[in-house]
């Protein structure tokens, strides 16, 4: 454990990132390096800009009318903030899972094969292989292998969310952004998805950035944790630290109060 911070490679560097919706500043001046092959949890009270922050990382913020971003985000050699980069390729490298599971209104299988086709995987056998692979990865294969043609909208909430994770994994992203992926699920489904997230990190070394309202969950899964806070009416980063330190010996009083459940 000697000087862990320098030993760990950082995959993505975020510098002085701010975001506005029209006139309203959603968050300001966030500087943070996302460590590679680890789970970074972002916690904080409602409205502090956690979801908005995630949408900058895959440039989904482009699609929100009136939304302007400033600052710098670097992924390897790629400057994510450069307006000229190919967002299709970027979003293939950075997958995103939403709070409310959003499988497409088509068959389970097609939810996975359709994006693969779009991304140029022409060989049907190759696609079938990937379908089985990713459904195995998310533990859905045994549950759905006999009804791959069934409509994905008829799955249970937890199954839907795992399907969404599977179809994102199929594109082999380097980073997964997850915006409260368990909060729309019942406790059992939530536990299954949580275990899945841990296994993705352990087995496949994914880099995961997860927003969660559930501190206990953050404690269980995170390697690093970041606390966002609303200061005035604008979100700010209060503390970013390895999970051990974040939960047991935080540097900031606010973090201390938050993790002890006194504030937030």
């Amino acid at each position: 454990m000697i000087n862990e911070m320098t030993e760990i490679q950082s995959l993505m560097q975020i510098q002085q990132l701010s975001l506005r919706y029209q006139q309203k500043l959603a968050f300001q001046d966030i500087t943070l390096s996302i460590p590679q092959n680890s789970i970074t949890a972002i916690v904080g009270p409602s409205g502090c800009g956690k979801s908005s922050f995630l949408t900058c990382l895959n440039r989904l913020s482009d699609l929100i009318p009136g939304c302007t971003v400033s600052g710098h985000i670097q992924l390897g050699t790629l400057n994510i903030r450069n307006p000229k980069i190919n967002t299709t390729a970027l979003r293939r490298r950075i997958g995103m899972i939403f709070q409310k599971p959003n499988p497409f209104p088509m068959s389970i299988e097609k939810n996975i094969t359709f994006p693969l086709k779009e991304h140029g995987i022409k060989n049907a056998q190759e696609r079938d292989r990937i379908v089985e692979q990713v459904l195995q990865d998310v533990g859905l294969w045994s549950e759905v292998k006999d009804r791959l043609q069934a409509n994905a909208l008829n799955l249970s909430g937890g199954q839907k969310q795992r399907l969404c994770i599977a179809r994102t994994l199929a594109l082999q992203p380097e980073i997964l952004l997850m915006d409260e992926p368990c909060s729309a699920l019942d406790p059992i489904a939530s536990g299954i998805v949580e275990d899945l997230i841990i296994s993705l990190r352990q087995k496949y070394n994914y880099t995961i950035i997860i927003v969660t309202h559930n501190l206990a969950q953050a404690k269980r899964i995170a390697d690093y944790a970041a606390l966002f806070w609303v200061d005035g009416s604008c979100g700010r980063l209060i503390e970013f630290a390895p999970a051990e330190q974040f939960f047991n010996a935080p540097n900031h009083e606010l973090t201390q109060a938050y993790v002890n459940g006194i504030k937030g």
Partner: peptide, 24 residues
């Protein structure tokens, strides 16, 4: 949610229109 999901996976607008919007 469908449109955001499609965009977040880097799907083309044509693919999204043909496979998601029109069927829905």
């Amino acid at each position: 949610a469908y449109l955001l999901g499609a965009a977040a996976m880097g799907l083309s607008s044509w693919g999204t229109i043909w496979q998601i919007i029109l069927p829905a």
